[in-house]
Design a protein around this nucleic acid. Sequence first.
DNA 1: CAACGCTACACAAAGGTTTGTGTGAATGGC
DNA 2: GCCATTCACACAAACCTTTGTGTAGCGTTG
Lengths: 367, 367
Amino acid sequence: MGRRTPHATLQMIADETGVTPSTVSRVLNSASEASARRWASMGTILRIRAAAASHGYTPNPQAVGLRTRRSRLIGVIVPRLQDYVLATIYEGIDEAATENGFATFVTNSLDDPRKRAQATETLLSRRVEGMIFGDAQFDGEFLEGVAERGTKFVLVSRRSRDYPSVTCDDHLGGRLVGEHLVSIGRRDVAILAGEPYAATGLDRTQGAVDALREAGVDVPPHRIVHGHFDAQGGRAAAERILDSHPLPDAIFATNDFAAIGVMGALRDRKLSMPDDVALVGYNDTALAAELPTPLTTVRSPMHEIGRLGLRMLLDLLQGDDVEPLRLPPTLVVRESTVSSEASSEASSETPSEAARVDAVHPGSGRT
Amino acid sequence: MGRRTPHATLQMIADETGVTPSTVSRVLNSASEASARRWASMGTILRIRAAAASHGYTPNPQAVGLRTRRSRLIGVIVPRLQDYVLATIYEGIDEAATENGFATFVTNSLDDPRKRAQATETLLSRRVEGMIFGDAQFDGEFLEGVAERGTKFVLVSRRSRDYPSVTCDDHLGGRLVGEHLVSIGRRDVAILAGEPYAATGLDRTQGAVDALREAGVDVPPHRIVHGHFDAQGGRAAAERILDSHPLPDAIFATNDFAAIGVMGALRDRKLSMPDDVALVGYNDTALAAELPTPLTTVRSPMHEIGRLGLRMLLDLLQGDDVEPLRLPPTLVVRESTVSSEASSEASSETPSEAARVDAVHPGSGRT
DNA sequence: CAACGCTACACAAAGGTTTGTGTGAATGGC
DNA sequence: GCCATTCACACAAACCTTTGTGTAGCGTTG
């Protein structure tokens, strides 16, 4: 209990129980009592366990790693942890890693190729067993190099080529938005497509465009503008759109934070929501439901993406083959597209939120 | 270059250059050429370096750790990485750690004592050299146990007792808010004080109360309400406040996200900002300036807190004594307290933001 | 020219595990 | 009462570094 010695070792426990470190190791590493009996008598087992417990023994991971050549370490690179979406995905990764006896290192790349490469080197030099990238560029060649070196990795959030990845089905998410906008009678939709190198924004945009086209609504190129996935980027992009005329009657910001920026731009111009312009975000961030005007958005399973990403990497490390995974999103309708009075049919999502329109439209099942 | 063998070792380089691993080690570990000459001839040095470079040699950290008994690993525990503030602080920590050749493990505790204890054990079993806690409970006894075991640690964001910590001077931050509210004529201030166990919210609240009292404005206990530091918590707390009458003419939410929740509650009740109620947040989150109504808030040096927290831990590990550090905050005035027309005197913060009132009032220097 | 001091290395141990193999003693079969 | 198992361990090597100490060969000095 009240130990202040650095750490107990097998040798210490061996001395104390009168056996050799190897026996201690085998006993302590046996999952069941039955399997431990292969290596020691019942009495010895009990004594070893008692001694280990009293010292709070925990194997030295560096020694274990040296011997077994496994570090139980995973490297994670994200564009930026400040970003709620990536932070949530990382939480899922870390949670699953801990459950499986792994630990993770996480760093920002800021979507900068140099930083990304540098961080990868640093992590590899730390002997991580595999990598998770949350910052894949849609058409970048960086990952090719990583793969060639034999490093196992999976992508989360953004997909790229056919590399193993866990993402939201962003194309479907975009479709849901397109269908919703059509259903509320919008015919002139502008889209904030996010960074041009991120599959997330590109797929969401394409999904919306496809759904709108099927409904006879065309989205001309000048209605699609790129920008950063944050409030400032959203505001800037929205200002470019709102300076054109005629004004669109709907804006799909492919990210909730960008949508918040759009709200600011709308207010500056005294445009009302949803009457003048309907606004849709993406990700159903914790903020979306609590904004002054609650935001219609697409819920993506961020936490689950992280968890499954780690599981997929573990499968990969084990030698299994894996298939890219796309999890279905859900549309969450709120007042930024349907004003509370107008929507009598919308069922409330949870009893506690009965005051607001919060209707969930599940993905239609297709992928 | 095109290697796919796991990793080069000293032995491989030694074989290749015809010396022993020990010589390779000494040469490679010598910072300067001059000091390397202590161990080998110039020719040997060059051959060793060339071989190491061609193999992309990087020392095995587990072997190094085993031998030197230093892991160059730091454990970080935060309430929740999803929280923008803690994510930003962690970015600072990780940045400084990388610069100093350390790597960090970070986990959420969700402010749950059991998770905190568990996470600490896990990190210690990973042989971290020190810990950084971002989730200290103001009057908790958990840290006492950690200190007794001889584990070095520093606190960030929240302080507790006299443990080494790097925080924002939250009391001063609260004062700035109190003084500002008085200066715009508000006399009935409600405060969302956040979690009752977090020094951050407590200090901010106390600072505001002190400044207001000095100006002759009393803040009665029922005007101070606790709740979670997020939008939902802010909305809930605001609703409690706004159900009372008379209504306050100002609300100080000790966190920007809570302030966003307050905005929703205000809108629900058709209350205007800043006319009916002036609203102030805390932290100057990236969102604050971009909200439909830009938020007056207190800028805290989150990134710097992280960086300095890590440096302080390094000092501690080196055996130095350290003093708790409180970094000064700055008030940022925006339209949630001063409408754009009303403020002709307010100077704009940056040229690019000239459209909005963005006046910065530096901390008055006192601590 | 003997003694000495460098130079440029080599040797060996240690750090804590895991794991393949070896072994004396007790047990069982006949 | 003898041989073959089985039990309950011990022994030793290997994983990769770092670091204290040893040493052969050479040049210098007086």
